[in-house]
Design a binder for these strands. Structure first.
Length: 187
DNA sequence: GCAGTGATCATA
DNA sequence: ATGATCACTGCC
């Protein structure tokens, strides 16, 4: 590897900063949009993998007819009613783990679903690739959990984000058409 | 187009 | 205890 390239990469790594809890303590749609281009980082033992996030969805609160928190606080959704910056994982269709991060204020259930990062397309495949499951439920998005998110200085070009309705929520009435899915165009 | 797969929750 | 549902994926 040429020295110049190595120097640039080292500079990029040095500028990486783990997103703080305050980043997540905002409306889910804002967080979902700003998570694009950030890096989802997974550490297992000595191995560290960082994947650039290119697709997210926002579930914005109890009034959102697609949000799991709409039926109140249950065993599964309890973490969504807690503070922002914690992982919400759940199993769907008996097979696929989904990864979300809790956003917003305490007692107001909201989260962002990770639908794509790196070469993974789809929330189930992403969790399979990074070995994410029930063990992450309720853990903070920090290095000590082995799963966190970094800002590595990537800036999205103007008009670089596509907004569409969310996937797989046709039951959600008026909310099924709201553009709460965010996609990085050059992904 | 649709089967696979099992946790979760409401109902009883 | 039982049954419906489900923020998906991969193969037909």
């Amino acid at each position: 590897m040429p020295p110049r390239t190595a120097a640039i990469q080292n500079a990029a790594i040095q500028s990486a900063v783990t997103l703080p809890a305050e980043f997540y303590r905002r409306p889910a749609d804002i967080v979902a949009r700003e998570l694009l281009g950030k890096y989802l980082v997974r550490r297992i033992g000595d191995e560290t993998v960082a994947l650039q996030i290119h697709e997210t969805e926002a579930y914005v609160g109890a009034h959102d007819l697609a949000c799991h928190g709409r039926f109140g606080c249950t065993d599964r959704t309890a973490v969504m009613f807690g503070p922002a910056g914690y992982w919400y994982t759940y199993l769907i269709y008996g097979m696929h783990w989904m990864l979300n991060v809790v956003t917003g204020e305490v007692d107001q259930p909201a989260a962002v679903l990770f639908r794509g990062a790196g070469n993974s397309r789809g929330p189930g495949k992403l969790c399979r690739e990074l070995s994410i499951d029930k063990s992450h439920y309720g853990l903070p998005a920090t290095a000590k959990s082995g799963l966190w998110i970094e800002d590595r200085g990537y800036t999205i070009r103007r008009g670089g984000i596509l907004r569409t309705p969310r996937i797989g929520i046709d039951y959600a009435g008026a909310w099924k058409d709201k553009k709460l899915r965010y996609v990085l165009k050059d992904s």
